[in-house]
Write a protein that binds this DNA or RNA. Structure first.
Lengths: 333, 333
DNA sequence: TTGAAAGCGCTAACAG
DNA sequence: CTGTTAGCGCTTTCAA
């Protein structure tokens, strides 16, 4: 691997000059000299060592992204958005899965700090909390979170309360009065907000909130399957179910089917996320759309503004959109 | 951010000593001294700068992983496996999506080279090809590929020929004689192998290979949907269809349904991959299982062996397993 | 316009 | 057992 010194030698200039031309430094370099250097760079196929650059410039052109689980299509899509934005800006991303475990989150943060990541995008799990926050150290001024977190980081958010309300209102409009809610992980503000939307919508329609109709899953199809079976076992079973993500909705539909119930005739189902597969399911899944890819893009753009100290809005909130498909109402979209 | 010098000062020792204790260097350090240093490290919350370490040690504890698209659950699952293995070994991963585009692949490689990645795991798309190969430079001795590539890198592979054969044989056993094949991207050895398996199986059963029954998709549900419609439009339409991945199978089932055909009664469908959602689909999807997570794990372990110059088998091939569900045969698994 | 030299924070000889 | 010192490859004053 050629170093800057090799280039300098070959072009018969000093390393300072080489540095100037490869960095398009404002410092002027003679036309002739510049070309000599460029030629040497070409011939040697020289590429600056990013580690050395990072060490001295105190920026690594790397950002960390911390999520619970890349296997979840929801996060995969967000990551894709982040990635594309990062790519365009010349940043590389280091990906970390935490399964929402506190100790993993802390380890991830430390690794990123050690590697001098220029920033972090955090989504899923808890980042407010003393240990986590203090692990961030100086990085704490370069964090963008996705979702609501009880701490003042710049954030890209989704109107989860509104989204859940839309879903429930839709079911109510269809005549459902007993609507079950299969929620996500307990320690998640997303879950809290969606439950709030659920409650609000019930209240607005003068429907009672019944504890037994609310179950908790872990966002996998399996958990939706389990949960729906429980709730359909009740003597007075619900006629509609709203799940906190699409994966659980798929599980729920499957569970209902196993119990001999038809969706949507015997049970109307509405999910959340609008992952790509929704349309292909049978019946196609009604859901609350979140623009995942755009969220990823925005988060990365926000992080870059933060890093570059540009002006920017610290909050960006995406509206959700109800997508009516057959799982709730029989006719298609 | 405290540096090693700060620690040295606080502990009243030299930086060399600090370095020795934080690296558990074989070089002995006195018990007392060690404790003094450790205490200083604690109090200052000192963490070594990975960039500086990398610069001097010529290893960054980072590996690159290059895939077409993290939104594809197949790759997401593999990445999860890689990640978990990397994590255990103290490596971070930088993720890159290429959409199988040559120029993107090359850019990804260069970035990794600049950042002094310790190795690369490559999957999907073409890595053999002059430009790509030469972009690798010295990294070319630290590459593990997933899938068959026409170049001699250590590889984790799947028996795609065998898998496709299993799928077709299964359909033949069920009495199907006209079996369509919806293949993946042209420039993929995976596609080539699966098509070979398809052909072989037909030949073994004395069934003709008919060009018109073979379509090509891009692995998305949409493309499976389009392809199946084409093939079902034929005057002598197939009664079975085998798709090169599950996503396309989902699309195909959806397409068949739209044409008023029942799966599996009018059309038997078999996919490939066994992504988590297969069970929850209606009908549950028969498919050829690939142990994606394990593939990811293996690839990373292989890469670590490569990096550490340990002995290891340069090829690991995973067998596939046919999973019979309702989409092909009416009765469940 | 160019070059010499001082580090960035760290490891690893080499001395003592 | 501990410290001094020479870099790793690069950017950036400061002089020339």
């Amino acid at each position: 691997m050629p170093t800057i010194r090799d280039v300098a030698r070959k072009a018969r200039v000093s390393i300072a000059t080489v540095s100037r031309v490869i960095n398009n430094s404002p410092h002027q370099v003679g036309r002739e000299t510049r070309e000599k250097v460029l030629r040497a760079v070409q011939e040697l196929d020289y590429r600056p060592n990013a580690l050395a650059q990072g060490l001295i410039m105190k920026r690594s052109m790397t950002v960390g992204i911390i999520i619970p689980d890349i296997s979840n299509p929801y996060y995969a899509e967000i990551v894709r958005g982040i990635q594309d934005a990062a790519d365009r800006a010349g940043y590389a991303i280091v990906l970390q899965n935490t399964d929402r475990k506190k100790d993993k989150i802390i380890r991830c943060i430390q690794v990123l700090r050690d590697k001098k990541a220029d920033g972090i995008i955090f989504s899923g799990g808890i980042i407010h909390g003393y240990e986590t926050l203090s692990a961030l150290g100086e990085l704490n001024s370069r964090v963008v979170v996705i979702g609501r977190h009880e701490v003042d980081f710049p954030a890209v958010r989704v109107d989860n309360i509104g989204g859940a309300t839309q879903a429930i209102q839709h079911l109510v409009d269809l005549g459902h009065e007993r609507i079950s809610f299969i929620n996500g992980p307990e320690m998640s503000t997303t879950s809290i907000d969606r439950q709030r939307g659920y409650k609000n919508a019930l209240a607005q329609n003068n429907l009672p909130f019944e504890r037994e109709l609310v179950k908790r899953g872990n966002l996998t199809p399996e958990s939706g399957y389990m949960a729906v079976k429980e709730v359909l076992q009740l003597r007075n079973r619900p006629t509609g179910v709203f799940t906190s993500n699409d994966l659980m909705a798929f599980g729920a539909i499957c569970g209902a089917r196993e119990l001999g119930l038809k969706v949507p005739d015997d049970l109307a189902v509405v999910g959340f996320d609008n992952i790509p597969l929704c349309t292909y399911f049978d019946p196609p899944l009604s859901t609350v759309e979140i623009p995942m890819y755009e969220i990823g893009l925005s988060a990365m753009e926000m992080l870059m503004d933060l890093i570059n100290q540009s002006e920017f809005d610290r909050y960006k909130i995406f509206k959700t959109r109800l997508i009516k498909r057959r799982s709730s109402q029989g006719k298609n979209t």
